[in-house]
């Protein structure tokens, strides 16, 4: 075994540091090591060097390889989640296809808004449209909504807000502001229904001012797709969605969803 003692000061047994990394020390020993590390912060490097073999241990595992389809599956799921953050679920192409398509299309809006409007964007948009045709929903109301949303995607200067659930009650999704069309598109899913008399209300926050934007309710499947005219809140940096009584005029209710640009 190589001589390891010179790497450590004489007052601390190197095995104690190894034990610290391995987690096999007694509480008293942990105190000794941590006190030592406080007094000798440069020795943190020794801790890291002792973690390295564990970090790299799995590189020696047998050459089992994942199936090629796994890569495709991961990238497809990532594309779906580009807009919304939600637990990973396998791709499904039947029920709810239009909504996933809408989310995927709007996910591409994010890329466009960030300057990533490229070949892939055009390709994916074409795919979304083809999905809709395949699902035979070209004449229904959802398709009308969808086509309206898709028409907004290529607009320059779009701004994107990622919206997150704040209390386990609301949903997740996004708001895409399309200044060139003076409209914003709100897309949410997994939005809980509210009791009669209550509404979800979206507020745009600019500086210290909160401006009411729109009320909405989810459909029976917890989904929201709504176009909202942009009035004086085009420069908003933050969006909140509260649960309010219908007649309320100030944001007094709890915040269900919020997001920042």
């Amino acid at each position: 075994m190589p001589d390891i003692a010179p790497l450590f000061p004489p007052e601390l047994n190197p095995e104690l540091l190894a034990g610290y990394v391995l987690g096999d020390l007694t509480p008293a020993e942990i105190k000794i090591v941590e006190a030592y590390l406080i007094a000798h912060p440069e020795q943190q490097a020794e801790i890291h060097s002792l973690m390295l073999p564990l970090d790299l241990l799995s590189l020696t595992l047998p050459a089992d390889n994942p199936p090629p389809s796994l890569r495709t599956q991961i990238l497809q799921s990532a594309a779906e989640q580009a807009l919304i953050s939600q637990p990973v679920t396998p791709l499904k192409v039947k029920s709810g296809r239009i909504w996933r398509s809408i989310f995927a299309g709007l996910g591409l809006t994010l890329m466009a808004g960030l300057g990533w409007h490229n070949y892939q964007l055009s390709h994916e948009l074409a795919k979304v449209k083809q999905d809709l045709k395949t699902a035979k929903i070209t004449q229904n109301q959802e398709d009308t909504k969808y086509q309206s949303v898709v028409s907004l995607l290529p607009q320059p200067n779009n701004r994107y807000f990622s919206l997150k659930n704040m209390q386990g009650k609301g949903g997740m999704g996004s708001l895409v502001m399309v200044p060139n069309k003076s409209v914003a598109v709100l897309v949410l899913q997994n939005v809980a229904p509210l009791p009669p008399g209550q509404v979800y209300r979206m507020w745009a926050i600019t500086g210290d001012e909160e401006m009411e934007c729109a009320d909405f309710a989810p459909d029976p499947e917890g989904r929201v797709l709504k176009q909202i005219p942009i009035k004086s809140w085009a420069a908003a940096k933050k969006i909140t969605i509260t649960i309010e009584q219908k007649e309320a005029t100030e944001p007094e209710g709890e915040i269900a969803i919020e997001g920042e640009i």
Partner: peptide, 20 residues
């Protein structure tokens, strides 16, 4: 077990010393 784990880790670390 403690001795074997610690000595094993220290020895592995020694073999990788130049990397750190």
């Amino acid at each position: 077990v403690k001795t074997r784990s610690r000595q094993g880790l220290l020895k592995l670390r020694q073999f990788l010393q130049d990397l750190v």
